[in-house]
Design a protein around this nucleic acid. Structure first.
Lengths: 201, 201
DNA sequence: TTAAAATTTGAACCTTGAGTCAAATTTATT
DNA sequence: AATAAATTTGACTCAAGGTTCAAATTTTAA
């Protein structure tokens, strides 16, 4: 029991710390989404958590690191969506539709935010986030290509399908309000239908 | 002739001034689009015009005023597009398609930028820009409703059609590069087709 | 109960970039 | 060429907000 306590205690600490760090980032990300990165001060972030500006620096190196982690979290979630697909069971069109639906639900249901302010990141951080975004876009482009190969998606530059697609997501993220009249699932239904029709032959 | 000169001289001055002021705003708007409002300093704006920071204040009251005028110019151009439509000659779908094509061409061909950073405007300025944007959105929503009434557009919440639509435009504006491989007209063709199919029955 | 570790804070510091202004320079007019 | 107006500038001020840190407070384990 003494041993159990010895082992458990430091573990709990780390979990606590990680959880609080995560809540800092999620709360900040939500503010960044609503007001923008530069219109959100460290004081704002701290206050919305009942803390002081200085306390944030116990969890985080920089303001920029918060932005980086916000982006990273979002793209990690999107990666999960992409990984959870069983690639060969569906037509390209159905696969794209499923991914799109999951993305819309991710942005409306869980608190994940798709941020646009990549240019406030510098150097390596910026490169990493852009690379991650590109990776995701390329993955989706591949799905479109599969759909064109199996005949379920119209011909045309696959990148343009994906840009259209990503545009809807980014904009959704900007106007969607959890408290608003439009419910996440309805939005998903509409968007998915519009996408499906837009890409079929 | 003396009179002609007297009349002409002050007029020329105003034209010069207005033209230079306009070029300040256009140049700044382009930088805002590429790097973001807060990542663009007054020095940056001045340098790209071969001027000094201080000289900008001869043409403009504020940095915020530049942002305001950037937004205002864009929405004025979009208004022109909407006004140039002959409403009753086309089906709703065709009208929407025409508007969308013109918007895409506006953003790719002329230097007009659709900025997202409304939250960096304060008070009355912010309200005016939001009102202008709403007005345009409502206009487009009306077109969608016409299309639903005349049977050329599928049923469904008209706002969602417009959000999808606006998302594509905003995102286009973020990634489009005049120097890039994708040519404006091709993008317009693709986007219009995807929209058309996406909204028809 | 106590001491060590973890967490939080108040009060500064420091950098960046917006904005000002009187003086210098350029341009237009006679 | 002379002068008045328009335009531009260098050098400065100023505020906002990100960052630091030593000290205070809270939490945990024995």
């Amino acid at each position: 029991m003494t041993q159990a306590a010895n082992i458990k205690a430091p573990f709990d600490r780390d979990v606590q710390f990680a959880a609080k760090r995560r809540s800092v980032i999620l709360s900040a990300a939500s503010a960044f989404r609503r007001r923008g990165y530069h219109n959100t001060s460290m004081v704002d972030i701290a206050q919305s958590l009942g803390l002081t500006k200085a306390a944030l620096y116990y969890y985080v190196k920089n303001k920029e690191e918060i932005l980086y982690e916000s982006h990273a979290m979002t793209y990690a979630s999107m990666d999960e969506v992409l990984q959870s697909q069983q690639p060969n069971e569906l037509s390209g069109r159905d696969a794209l539709e499923a991914v799109f639906r999951n993305f819309v639900e991710l942005l409306t249901q869980s608190g994940v935010s798709l941020l646009t302010d990549v240019d406030s990141l510098k150097g390596e951080w910026k490169l990493q986030i852009l690379a991650h975004r590109n990776k995701i876009e390329r993955h989706v482009i591949e799905i479109v290509k599969c759909g064109q190969a199996d005949g379920s998606i119209r011909s045309g530059d696959p990148r343009l399908y994906v840009f259209f697609f990503m545009g809807a997501l980014n904009w959704l993220n900007a106007w969607y309000d959890v408290e608003g009249r439009l419910k996440g699932e309805d939005i998903a239904d509409h968007f998915v239908l519009q996408l499906r029709q837009g890409i079929m032959k």
